[in-house]
C-alpha cells in the first residue's frame, strides 16, 4: 500500500491533532508528526498544510522571537479547527472500521 497516498488524504487531520495538543511552529509540527510514526511525511507538505489550514480559519498564528535564529511563526488551533478535527476523527473512525473489516475478512479467507 502506498503510504504517501494515505498521508495525502490524512495529513490535514494529523496536523490538526498535533497542533490541538500544543501550539507549534513549522519544524516543531513536522518533528512531532515524525515522532508519532509518520516518518515519511514531507517537509513541504506539512508547511503547505499549515498554511492552508491557517487560511481556512482552522488555525491562527503568532510570531515569537527566537534567540538563535529567525522569528518563529507558531500555529494554534481555533474553534473551527477543533470542529474540523472532530469531523476528521469521525470520518477516520468510520473509514478505519470499514477498512479493518474488509482487510480482516480477507485475511481470514486467505488463512
Amino acid at each position: 500500500m502506498d503510504r504517501s497516498q494515505l498521508l495525502r488524504g490524512t495529513l490535514e487531520a494529523a496536523v490538526l491533532a498535533v497542533v490541538a495538543e500544543q501550539d507549534g511552529y513549522g519544524y516543531d509540527v513536522l518533528r512531532r508528526l515524525r515522532a508519532s510514526g509518520l516518518q515519511d511525511v514531507g517537509d513541504a507538505s506539512v508547511y503547505g498544510t499549515l498554511r492552508r489550514l491557517y487560511k481556512g480559519g482552522a488555525l491562527m498564528s503568532y510570531v515569537m522571537p527566537s534567540d538563535e535564529g529567525p522569528h518563529r511563526r507558531y500555529y494554534g488551533i481555533t474553534d473551527r479547527g477543533r470542529e474540523q478535527l472532530c469531523d476528521a476523527r469521525d470520518t477516520w473512525a468510520d473509514f478505519n472500521r470499514a477498512m479493518s473489516t474488509l482487510l480482516e475478512t480477507e485475511l481470514e479467507v486467505t488463512a
Binding site: Y25, G26, L30, G42, Y47, G48
Partner: peptide
C-alpha cells in the same frame, strides 16, 4: 526558519519542494 533549525536542506530539488508546498497549501 525550519530549514535553519533542522540543519539540513530537503532531499527534494527546490522546484519539486515548491510544487509540493503549493499543492499542500491549496
Amino acid at each position: 526558519a525550519s530549514l535553519l533549525e533542522s540543519g539540513e536542506t530537503p532531499k527534494l530539488p527546490p522546484q519539486e519542494f515548491a510544487a509540493e508546498l503549493r499543492e499542500a497549501a491549496g
